[in-house]
Nucleic acid binder design. Structure first.
Lengths: 355, 355
DNA sequence: CTGTTAGCGCGTTCAA
DNA sequence: TTGAACGCGCTAACAG
């Protein structure tokens, strides 16, 4: 599978120099005569030298500190998955002398976000992972980081005008488009469609939602341009309000058999439907594999869930920062996550990670 | 994210003993007085000691040899993906002094398979990864390995009566069930359905195919029990024969608008349909992301592809063997791969790997 | 310019 | 039973 393992000593011996000299040419650290350099280079060209990563890490005395600015998550939700991915990566790179901290803020709370960002500007940090929340505040931070030469990276959402070393997230518009295509497979003549939205529709934190909606309506425009659409605004917390709203809505619109939810809270609709078997929906699509959503999928009150690998986003985020900062490797400017399609039949086999 | 890093020396100092003693209690290597043991244990209980993996690997002098018995792959196909995953894992564990070799055989060729298996019985091997092909031959090998105490693991297909430390693969029946559910979303009154099969239908190598078919028909039985079904037998190689067969079939059966292929060769049907736009199919489902299949998906001559992460199977296979043999960790008895659902709209974002 | 040397954290001798 | 000493492969500081 791979060839013999060569060590620095091997190379030194083959080139007739000392290990120190080999190390110097390997790292272009200068102070090497042209003659020695060539002799070493010749050996290097002939064999396929792969340094022992472990020895490198062990010998390296540098310490790196990375900080993540991400929303606080609650048990099982989207951000807690991101957090888990970060933890997993942190664990993996720990022996490389990389420490990872999370500086969490309250989602969609500007003051809280500002505070987290400000903190980054007072401490020594080697790299920052940001799940951006408010545009202007983010730019203040990234401008500062740009000046300092501190690399940073966005996950989940990309802020233009900033200069992250990488962006990791899903193509939201495309995922909306796909959501529509899936859902409309259930369409039958006369069906109407409902978008279940959340009050904070225009909150800066909900731009993803907008993108998904864009993609969704793009599909409708191409394929079902006469479809009757309804917007239902639900509340994030107030179940009673939602109950009344949905009661009211479904009574008034008996032809609505399809529904879409563009944030993580499709379970609100799913749970309602479970309580109200008299409401006959033919298709509901939602996002993210919160335990509540998965439960709805299994109970068939939700038909499709679209996953965006939050854990992988966190994991890749940290790994990308490491590759850039610690290993000085080239990193992709943008990494789109897969658009995972989950149904009752494959949810049990789904897992996010690799090993 | 994690607490201070403790080294063996730290523990030794805290417990008032030497590093050697700490090592002895850590590895239960005996020759430690009860008093020393307790003092060390006390420190261990108080701190969260995580040994430096790199130092362990570096200090370890053991060499491990793992061998993979897998079918020969051709550029881009299923087995070449498995092979890639194995290579990736091999690269990762290389510095742990683990070498990985592949002993390939010709798929569905019993002699070739036997030869590969026999080779395992003559050489010193620390662990074996097997993609089983013929039942009896496999059992001969596994019996031998059982006797030797050499751990082995199956990927792709599980042979009962053997005692692998783990099986890694997809739930084929369930994936067939899901394939049916997806495809039947395209069903319209009067549609007939075609199964495009391959000559070697009852080859031992094609049992997976049978399972998928089982799952598929199970769904039909539950939901569409009056559907008219057709079997079309295509040839693996002979394009002309297939062309004629399909011409003939579609002429005779104009109501067939749905099709399923249970091996990797849905492209044969997809390519035919591209050449024959007069044949109007509404839905085709197939397996595996061969480049040809992906191309069909993008061209919309195939509507759904089901992925089973061949690369991940290879990767996890090696990693599992390592965890068991090298790191002596408990490993899962069975790892089902996700049943990935790919359509034109999400194929571009699909990738198998993690980082 | 170059070879030598001292660790990095751990496993493994080998005396004591 | 224990501590000290060595080496894994590599980096970096130091002496020549």
């Amino acid at each position: 599978m791979d060839t013999k393992k060569f060590t620095i000593k091997d190379i030194a011996r083959l080139a007739g120099v000392s290990a120190g000299t080999v190390d110097r040419v390997l790292h272009q650290r200068g102070d090497v005569s042209e003659k020695s350099r060539q002799r070493v280079q010749k050996v290097l060209d002939e064999i396929h030298y792969q340094p022992n990563k472990f020895a490198i890490a062990l010998a390296g005395k540098k310490n790196y500190r990375m900080v993540c600015i991400i929303p606080q998550g609650k048990e099982g939700d989207y951000w807690s998955s991101v957090h888990q991915g970060i933890e997993r990566a942190a664990h993996e790179v720990r022996d490389y002398n990389v420490s990872v901290e999370c500086c969490t803020f309250k989602h969609a709370d500007e003051e809280s976000y500002k505070k987290a960002c400000r903190q980054m500007m007072t401490e020594r940090v080697d790299a920052v992972l940001i799940a951006p929340n408010f545009r202007e505040t983010t730019l203040t931070l990234t401008n500062y980081l740009d000046e300092q030469g501190t690399p940073y990276l966005f996950i989940d959402f990309n802020i233009l005008k900033a200069h992250p070393i990488s962006y990791i997230g899903q193509d939201s518009k495309q995922s909306g488009y796909l959501a529509a295509k899936l859902l409309m497979k259930e369409y039958r003549e006369g069906d109407e469609l409902a978008f279940f939205l959340t009050g904070s529709k225009d909150s800066p934190a909900e731009i993803q939602m907008q993108r998904r909606l864009e993609g969704f309506t793009a599909y409708l425009a191409e394929n079902h341009n006469r479809l009757i659409l309804h917007d239902i605004i639900l509340d994030k917390e107030d179940h009673h309000y939602n109950e009344r709203t949905l009661d009211d809505f479904f009574t008034k619109h008996p032809d609505v058999h399809l529904g879409a939810v563009f944030n993580s809270r499709v379970y609100a609709v799913g749970n309602y439907l479970r309580q109200h078997p008299e409401v006959k929906m033919r298709g509901i699509v939602g996002y993210d594999l919160l335990p509540e959503n998965v439960e709805c999928l299994k109970q068939s009150t939700v038909d499709y869930l679209i996953g965006q690998r939050p854990g992988l986003q966190g994991y890749c985020g940290i790994m990308t920062l490491c590759n850039h900062v610690v290993f000085k490797l080239a990193v992709p400017t943008i990494s789109y996550m897969p658009i995972d399609l989950l149904m009752k039949e494959n949810i049990d086999y789904y897992f996010e990670k690799e090993d």
